Amino acid sequence: MPVWLREHRWRQTAAAVYLSLPLRGARATAANIFCTDQYLKVSIPPFLFEAILYAPIDDTNSTAKIGNGIIFFTLYKKEAAMWDSLTLENANKEKLQYLRENAVLKAHEKAKEETEAKKVTKQEHKKYALEATMKIEEAERKRIEDLKEKERQKVTKELELWKKQQKDAEKQKRVQKEGEIHQEVEQLKEKEKEKMDKARIPNEGTCKTRLKPTKGCIMRSVFYHSLQ
């Protein structure tokens, strides 16, 4: 047989009910509490607390704090109004049984909805995670491609610069070579001219030497004729 926890204190405002339930030394966790919109149950074997609430509450936002040997409930009313009592009074067993079964059914439906919602949320999170992963991979791929493109442009630029430098160097060598060839040609011309000049000077001296005797002979001949 359960030991009923009948000692409790409660107060209310138009918006909420505040319920304090002593545990008589028992240790409670959230798993020991069952609450729907009009049914509240605390089961810590052998202790048991059960309440068919006077009016529906917002069981989603209502809270239960466990500590110092008590459970303190903050139950937010669905409709702002003052209650005549914490629980329904003068309810027969059939109605109480119906409310219990209905509370359990609602709890199962709510749990099923929450499970489905968690499933959908999990799928959405999985989809989001997949999309996020794909975006990260795409961004990483683009980053790598950009790095490759920058490296390619850098190598291409360096290659073009090297080609230009090689071309300029070859052009400079060609100009230098042409200058050297031109200088050699000029030197050869100069040497050839010097040779020709040297060859011309002795010939002119020989002619003069030959003419002198001839001229002398002619003069002697003239002189000779004059004497005669």
Score class of each variant (00 low, 15 high):
residue 1 M to E: 07
residue 2 P to D: 07
residue 3 V to G: 08
residue 5 L to W: 04
residue 5 L to D: 06
residue 8 H to S: 14
residue 11 R to P: 05
residue 12 Q to K: 03
residue 15 A to Y: 07
residue 17 V to E: 02
residue 18 Y to M: 08
residue 18 Y to I: 06
residue 23 L to D: 03
residue 29 T to L: 02
residue 31 A to W: 03
residue 32 N to F: 00
residue 33 I to L: 02
residue 35 C to W: 02
residue 35 C to Y: 05
residue 35 C to V: 07
residue 36 T to D: 05
residue 41 K to P: 03
residue 44 I to A: 05
residue 49 F to P: 00
residue 52 I to V: 11
residue 54 Y to Q: 13
residue 54 Y to D: 14
residue 54 Y to L: 00
residue 59 D to H: 15
residue 60 T to A: 14
residue 64 A to P: 07
residue 65 K to I: 09
residue 66 I to T: 11
residue 69 G to N: 11
residue 72 F to N: 12
residue 73 F to T: 05
residue 74 T to L: 08
residue 75 L to P: 00
residue 77 K to R: 05
residue 79 E to M: 09
residue 84 D to R: 13
residue 87 T to V: 04
residue 87 T to C: 10
residue 89 E to T: 15
residue 89 E to Y: 06
residue 90 N to A: 05
residue 92 N to F: 02
residue 93 K to V: 06
residue 94 E to D: 11
residue 95 K to P: 00
residue 98 Y to D: 07
residue 99 L to E: 10
residue 100 R to K: 12
residue 100 R to P: 00
residue 100 R to T: 06
residue 105 L to R: 15
residue 107 A to D: 13
residue 110 K to F: 11
residue 110 K to T: 13
residue 111 A to V: 02
residue 114 E to V: 05
residue 114 E to K: 06
residue 115 T to N: 12
residue 117 A to Q: 15
residue 119 K to R: 15
residue 120 V to K: 15
residue 121 T to C: 12
residue 121 T to Y: 12
residue 124 E to A: 00
residue 127 K to C: 00
residue 128 Y to H: 15
residue 130 L to R: 14
residue 132 A to K: 13
residue 133 T to D: 15
residue 133 T to S: 14
residue 133 T to G: 10
residue 134 M to S: 10
residue 135 K to H: 10
residue 135 K to N: 12
residue 135 K to P: 04
residue 135 K to S: 10
residue 136 I to E: 15
residue 138 E to I: 01
residue 139 A to P: 01
residue 139 A to C: 09
residue 143 R to F: 03
residue 143 R to G: 04
residue 144 I to M: 03
residue 146 D to W: 04
residue 147 L to T: 06
residue 148 K to G: 00
residue 149 E to H: 02
residue 152 R to W: 03
residue 152 R to G: 03
residue 152 R to V: 02
residue 153 Q to I: 01
residue 154 K to M: 07
residue 155 V to C: 02
residue 155 V to E: 08
residue 156 T to W: 12
residue 158 E to I: 05
residue 159 L to S: 13
residue 160 E to D: 11
residue 160 E to V: 06
residue 160 E to M: 03
residue 162 W to A: 14
residue 162 W to F: 09
residue 164 K to A: 13
residue 165 Q to W: 08
residue 167 K to L: 12
residue 172 Q to Y: 09
residue 172 Q to K: 14
residue 173 K to H: 05
residue 177 K to W: 06
residue 180 E to H: 03
residue 182 H to Y: 01
residue 182 H to F: 05
residue 183 Q to N: 00
residue 184 E to A: 14
residue 186 E to P: 01
residue 186 E to S: 02
residue 188 L to T: 01
residue 190 E to V: 04
residue 191 K to S: 11
residue 191 K to R: 15
residue 193 K to Y: 01
residue 194 E to Y: 01
residue 197 D to V: 01
residue 198 K to Y: 05
residue 200 R to Y: 13
residue 201 I to H: 08
residue 201 I to L: 10
residue 202 P to V: 01
residue 204 E to D: 06
residue 206 T to N: 07
residue 206 T to A: 14
residue 206 T to R: 13
residue 208 K to L: 13
residue 210 R to V: 14
residue 213 P to M: 08
residue 216 G to Q: 08
residue 219 M to K: 13
residue 221 S to E: 13
residue 222 V to P: 03
